[in-house]
């Protein structure tokens, strides 16, 4: 069957309208549910840097959200450690809504840095851990995560990493608890208080690692290097904030 050009044009035009309409309706209709799942995902990731993952995976979405509301107090600081209360539009800053990616593209001095404080279960004024988001480049694409520091701002309580496109079985292992647990208990500061971060070494099965080193991932040296770089970069971006807390804490004593 051979149709005229007019028929073809009309056909494709009608098809485009139907398909376009259908897709925009779906997108609009599902937007609230999608927003909710993204929020849940972010909050789960934040919590997983300080909580037992097994326990977390057994919790229902509502439980996670209420747990988050109860235990996490968040704020946003700038590079100098000063709290930012209002955003550009003059509205209250919400740390959860700060896009780490958008900020990553800015110069470090202009970025907004969210901090998530994990509060003590019995004493809600006491901070158990400071959780900071980190973002960087792996081998193929972006990698990011959250690192939780104990209230001494030196010992790592936990870390959670995620990625867009690292090689499955190699670099993608950064999402596994096995790798992330290697960071627990490691120190980020040298004896005289300088940030030296924690480095993932090359190769796997290394022995005699010090408190600033974790075992590497076999076959994923570059992803490991990406993790090292982002960790070190973000720890230094948050250094002034950490200093203000430490000074504040000593003043109270």
């Amino acid at each position: 069957m051979q149709q005229s050009n007019t028929y073809i044009i009309i056909f494709t035009a009608v098809m485009t309208v139907i398909v376009g309409g259908l897709l925009s309706l779906t997108s609009q209709g599902l937007a609230p549910a999608q927003k909710k799942s993204i929020e849940l995902d972010t909050k789960t990731q934040i919590l997983s840097s300080v909580m037992d993952r097994e326990q977390l995976s057994k919790m229902k979405p509502d439980e996670i959200l209420s747990m988050y509301n109860e235990r996490i107090a968040s704020l946003v600081v700038d590079i100098n450690g000063q709290i930012i209360e209002k955003d550009e539009k003059g509205e209250d800053m919400v740390a959860e809504e700060v896009s780490i990616l958008k900020n990553y593209k800015k110069d470090p001095s202009e970025r907004q840095y969210p901090v998530f404080k994990y509060m003590n279960e019995s004493d809600l004024n006491k901070v158990d851990a400071y959780i900071i988001p980190i973002y960087g480049a792996g081998l193929w694409n972006a990698i990011w995560g959250y690192v939780a520091l104990e209230s001494d701002l030196n010992t790592i309580t936990g870390a959670s990493f995620d990625h867009t496109g690292e090689t499955p079985g190699l670099g993608a292992r950064i999402t596994s608890p096995e790798i992330q647990n290697r960071y627990v208990g490691k120190k980020i500061l040298s004896d005289n208080g300088e940030i030296i971060s924690v480095n993932m070494v090359k190769g796997e099965g290394n022995e005699g690692l010090n408190e600033h080193q974790v075992d590497g991932m076999s076959g994923a040296t570059i992803t490991g290097r990406g993790v090292n770089d982002m960790l070190k970069a973000y720890l230094s971006h948050y250094e002034s904030y950490f200093t203000t807390i430490k000074n504040g804490a000593t003043a109270k004593l």
Binding site: L22, L23, T26, L30, A33, Q34, I38, D41
Partner: peptide
């Protein structure tokens, strides 16, 4: 496919 993708994003983000 886009429909499937959007539904997954909304109800099974994992």
């Amino acid at each position: 496919v886009t429909l499937v993708n959007e539904v997954l994003k909304a109800y099974n983000y994992e």
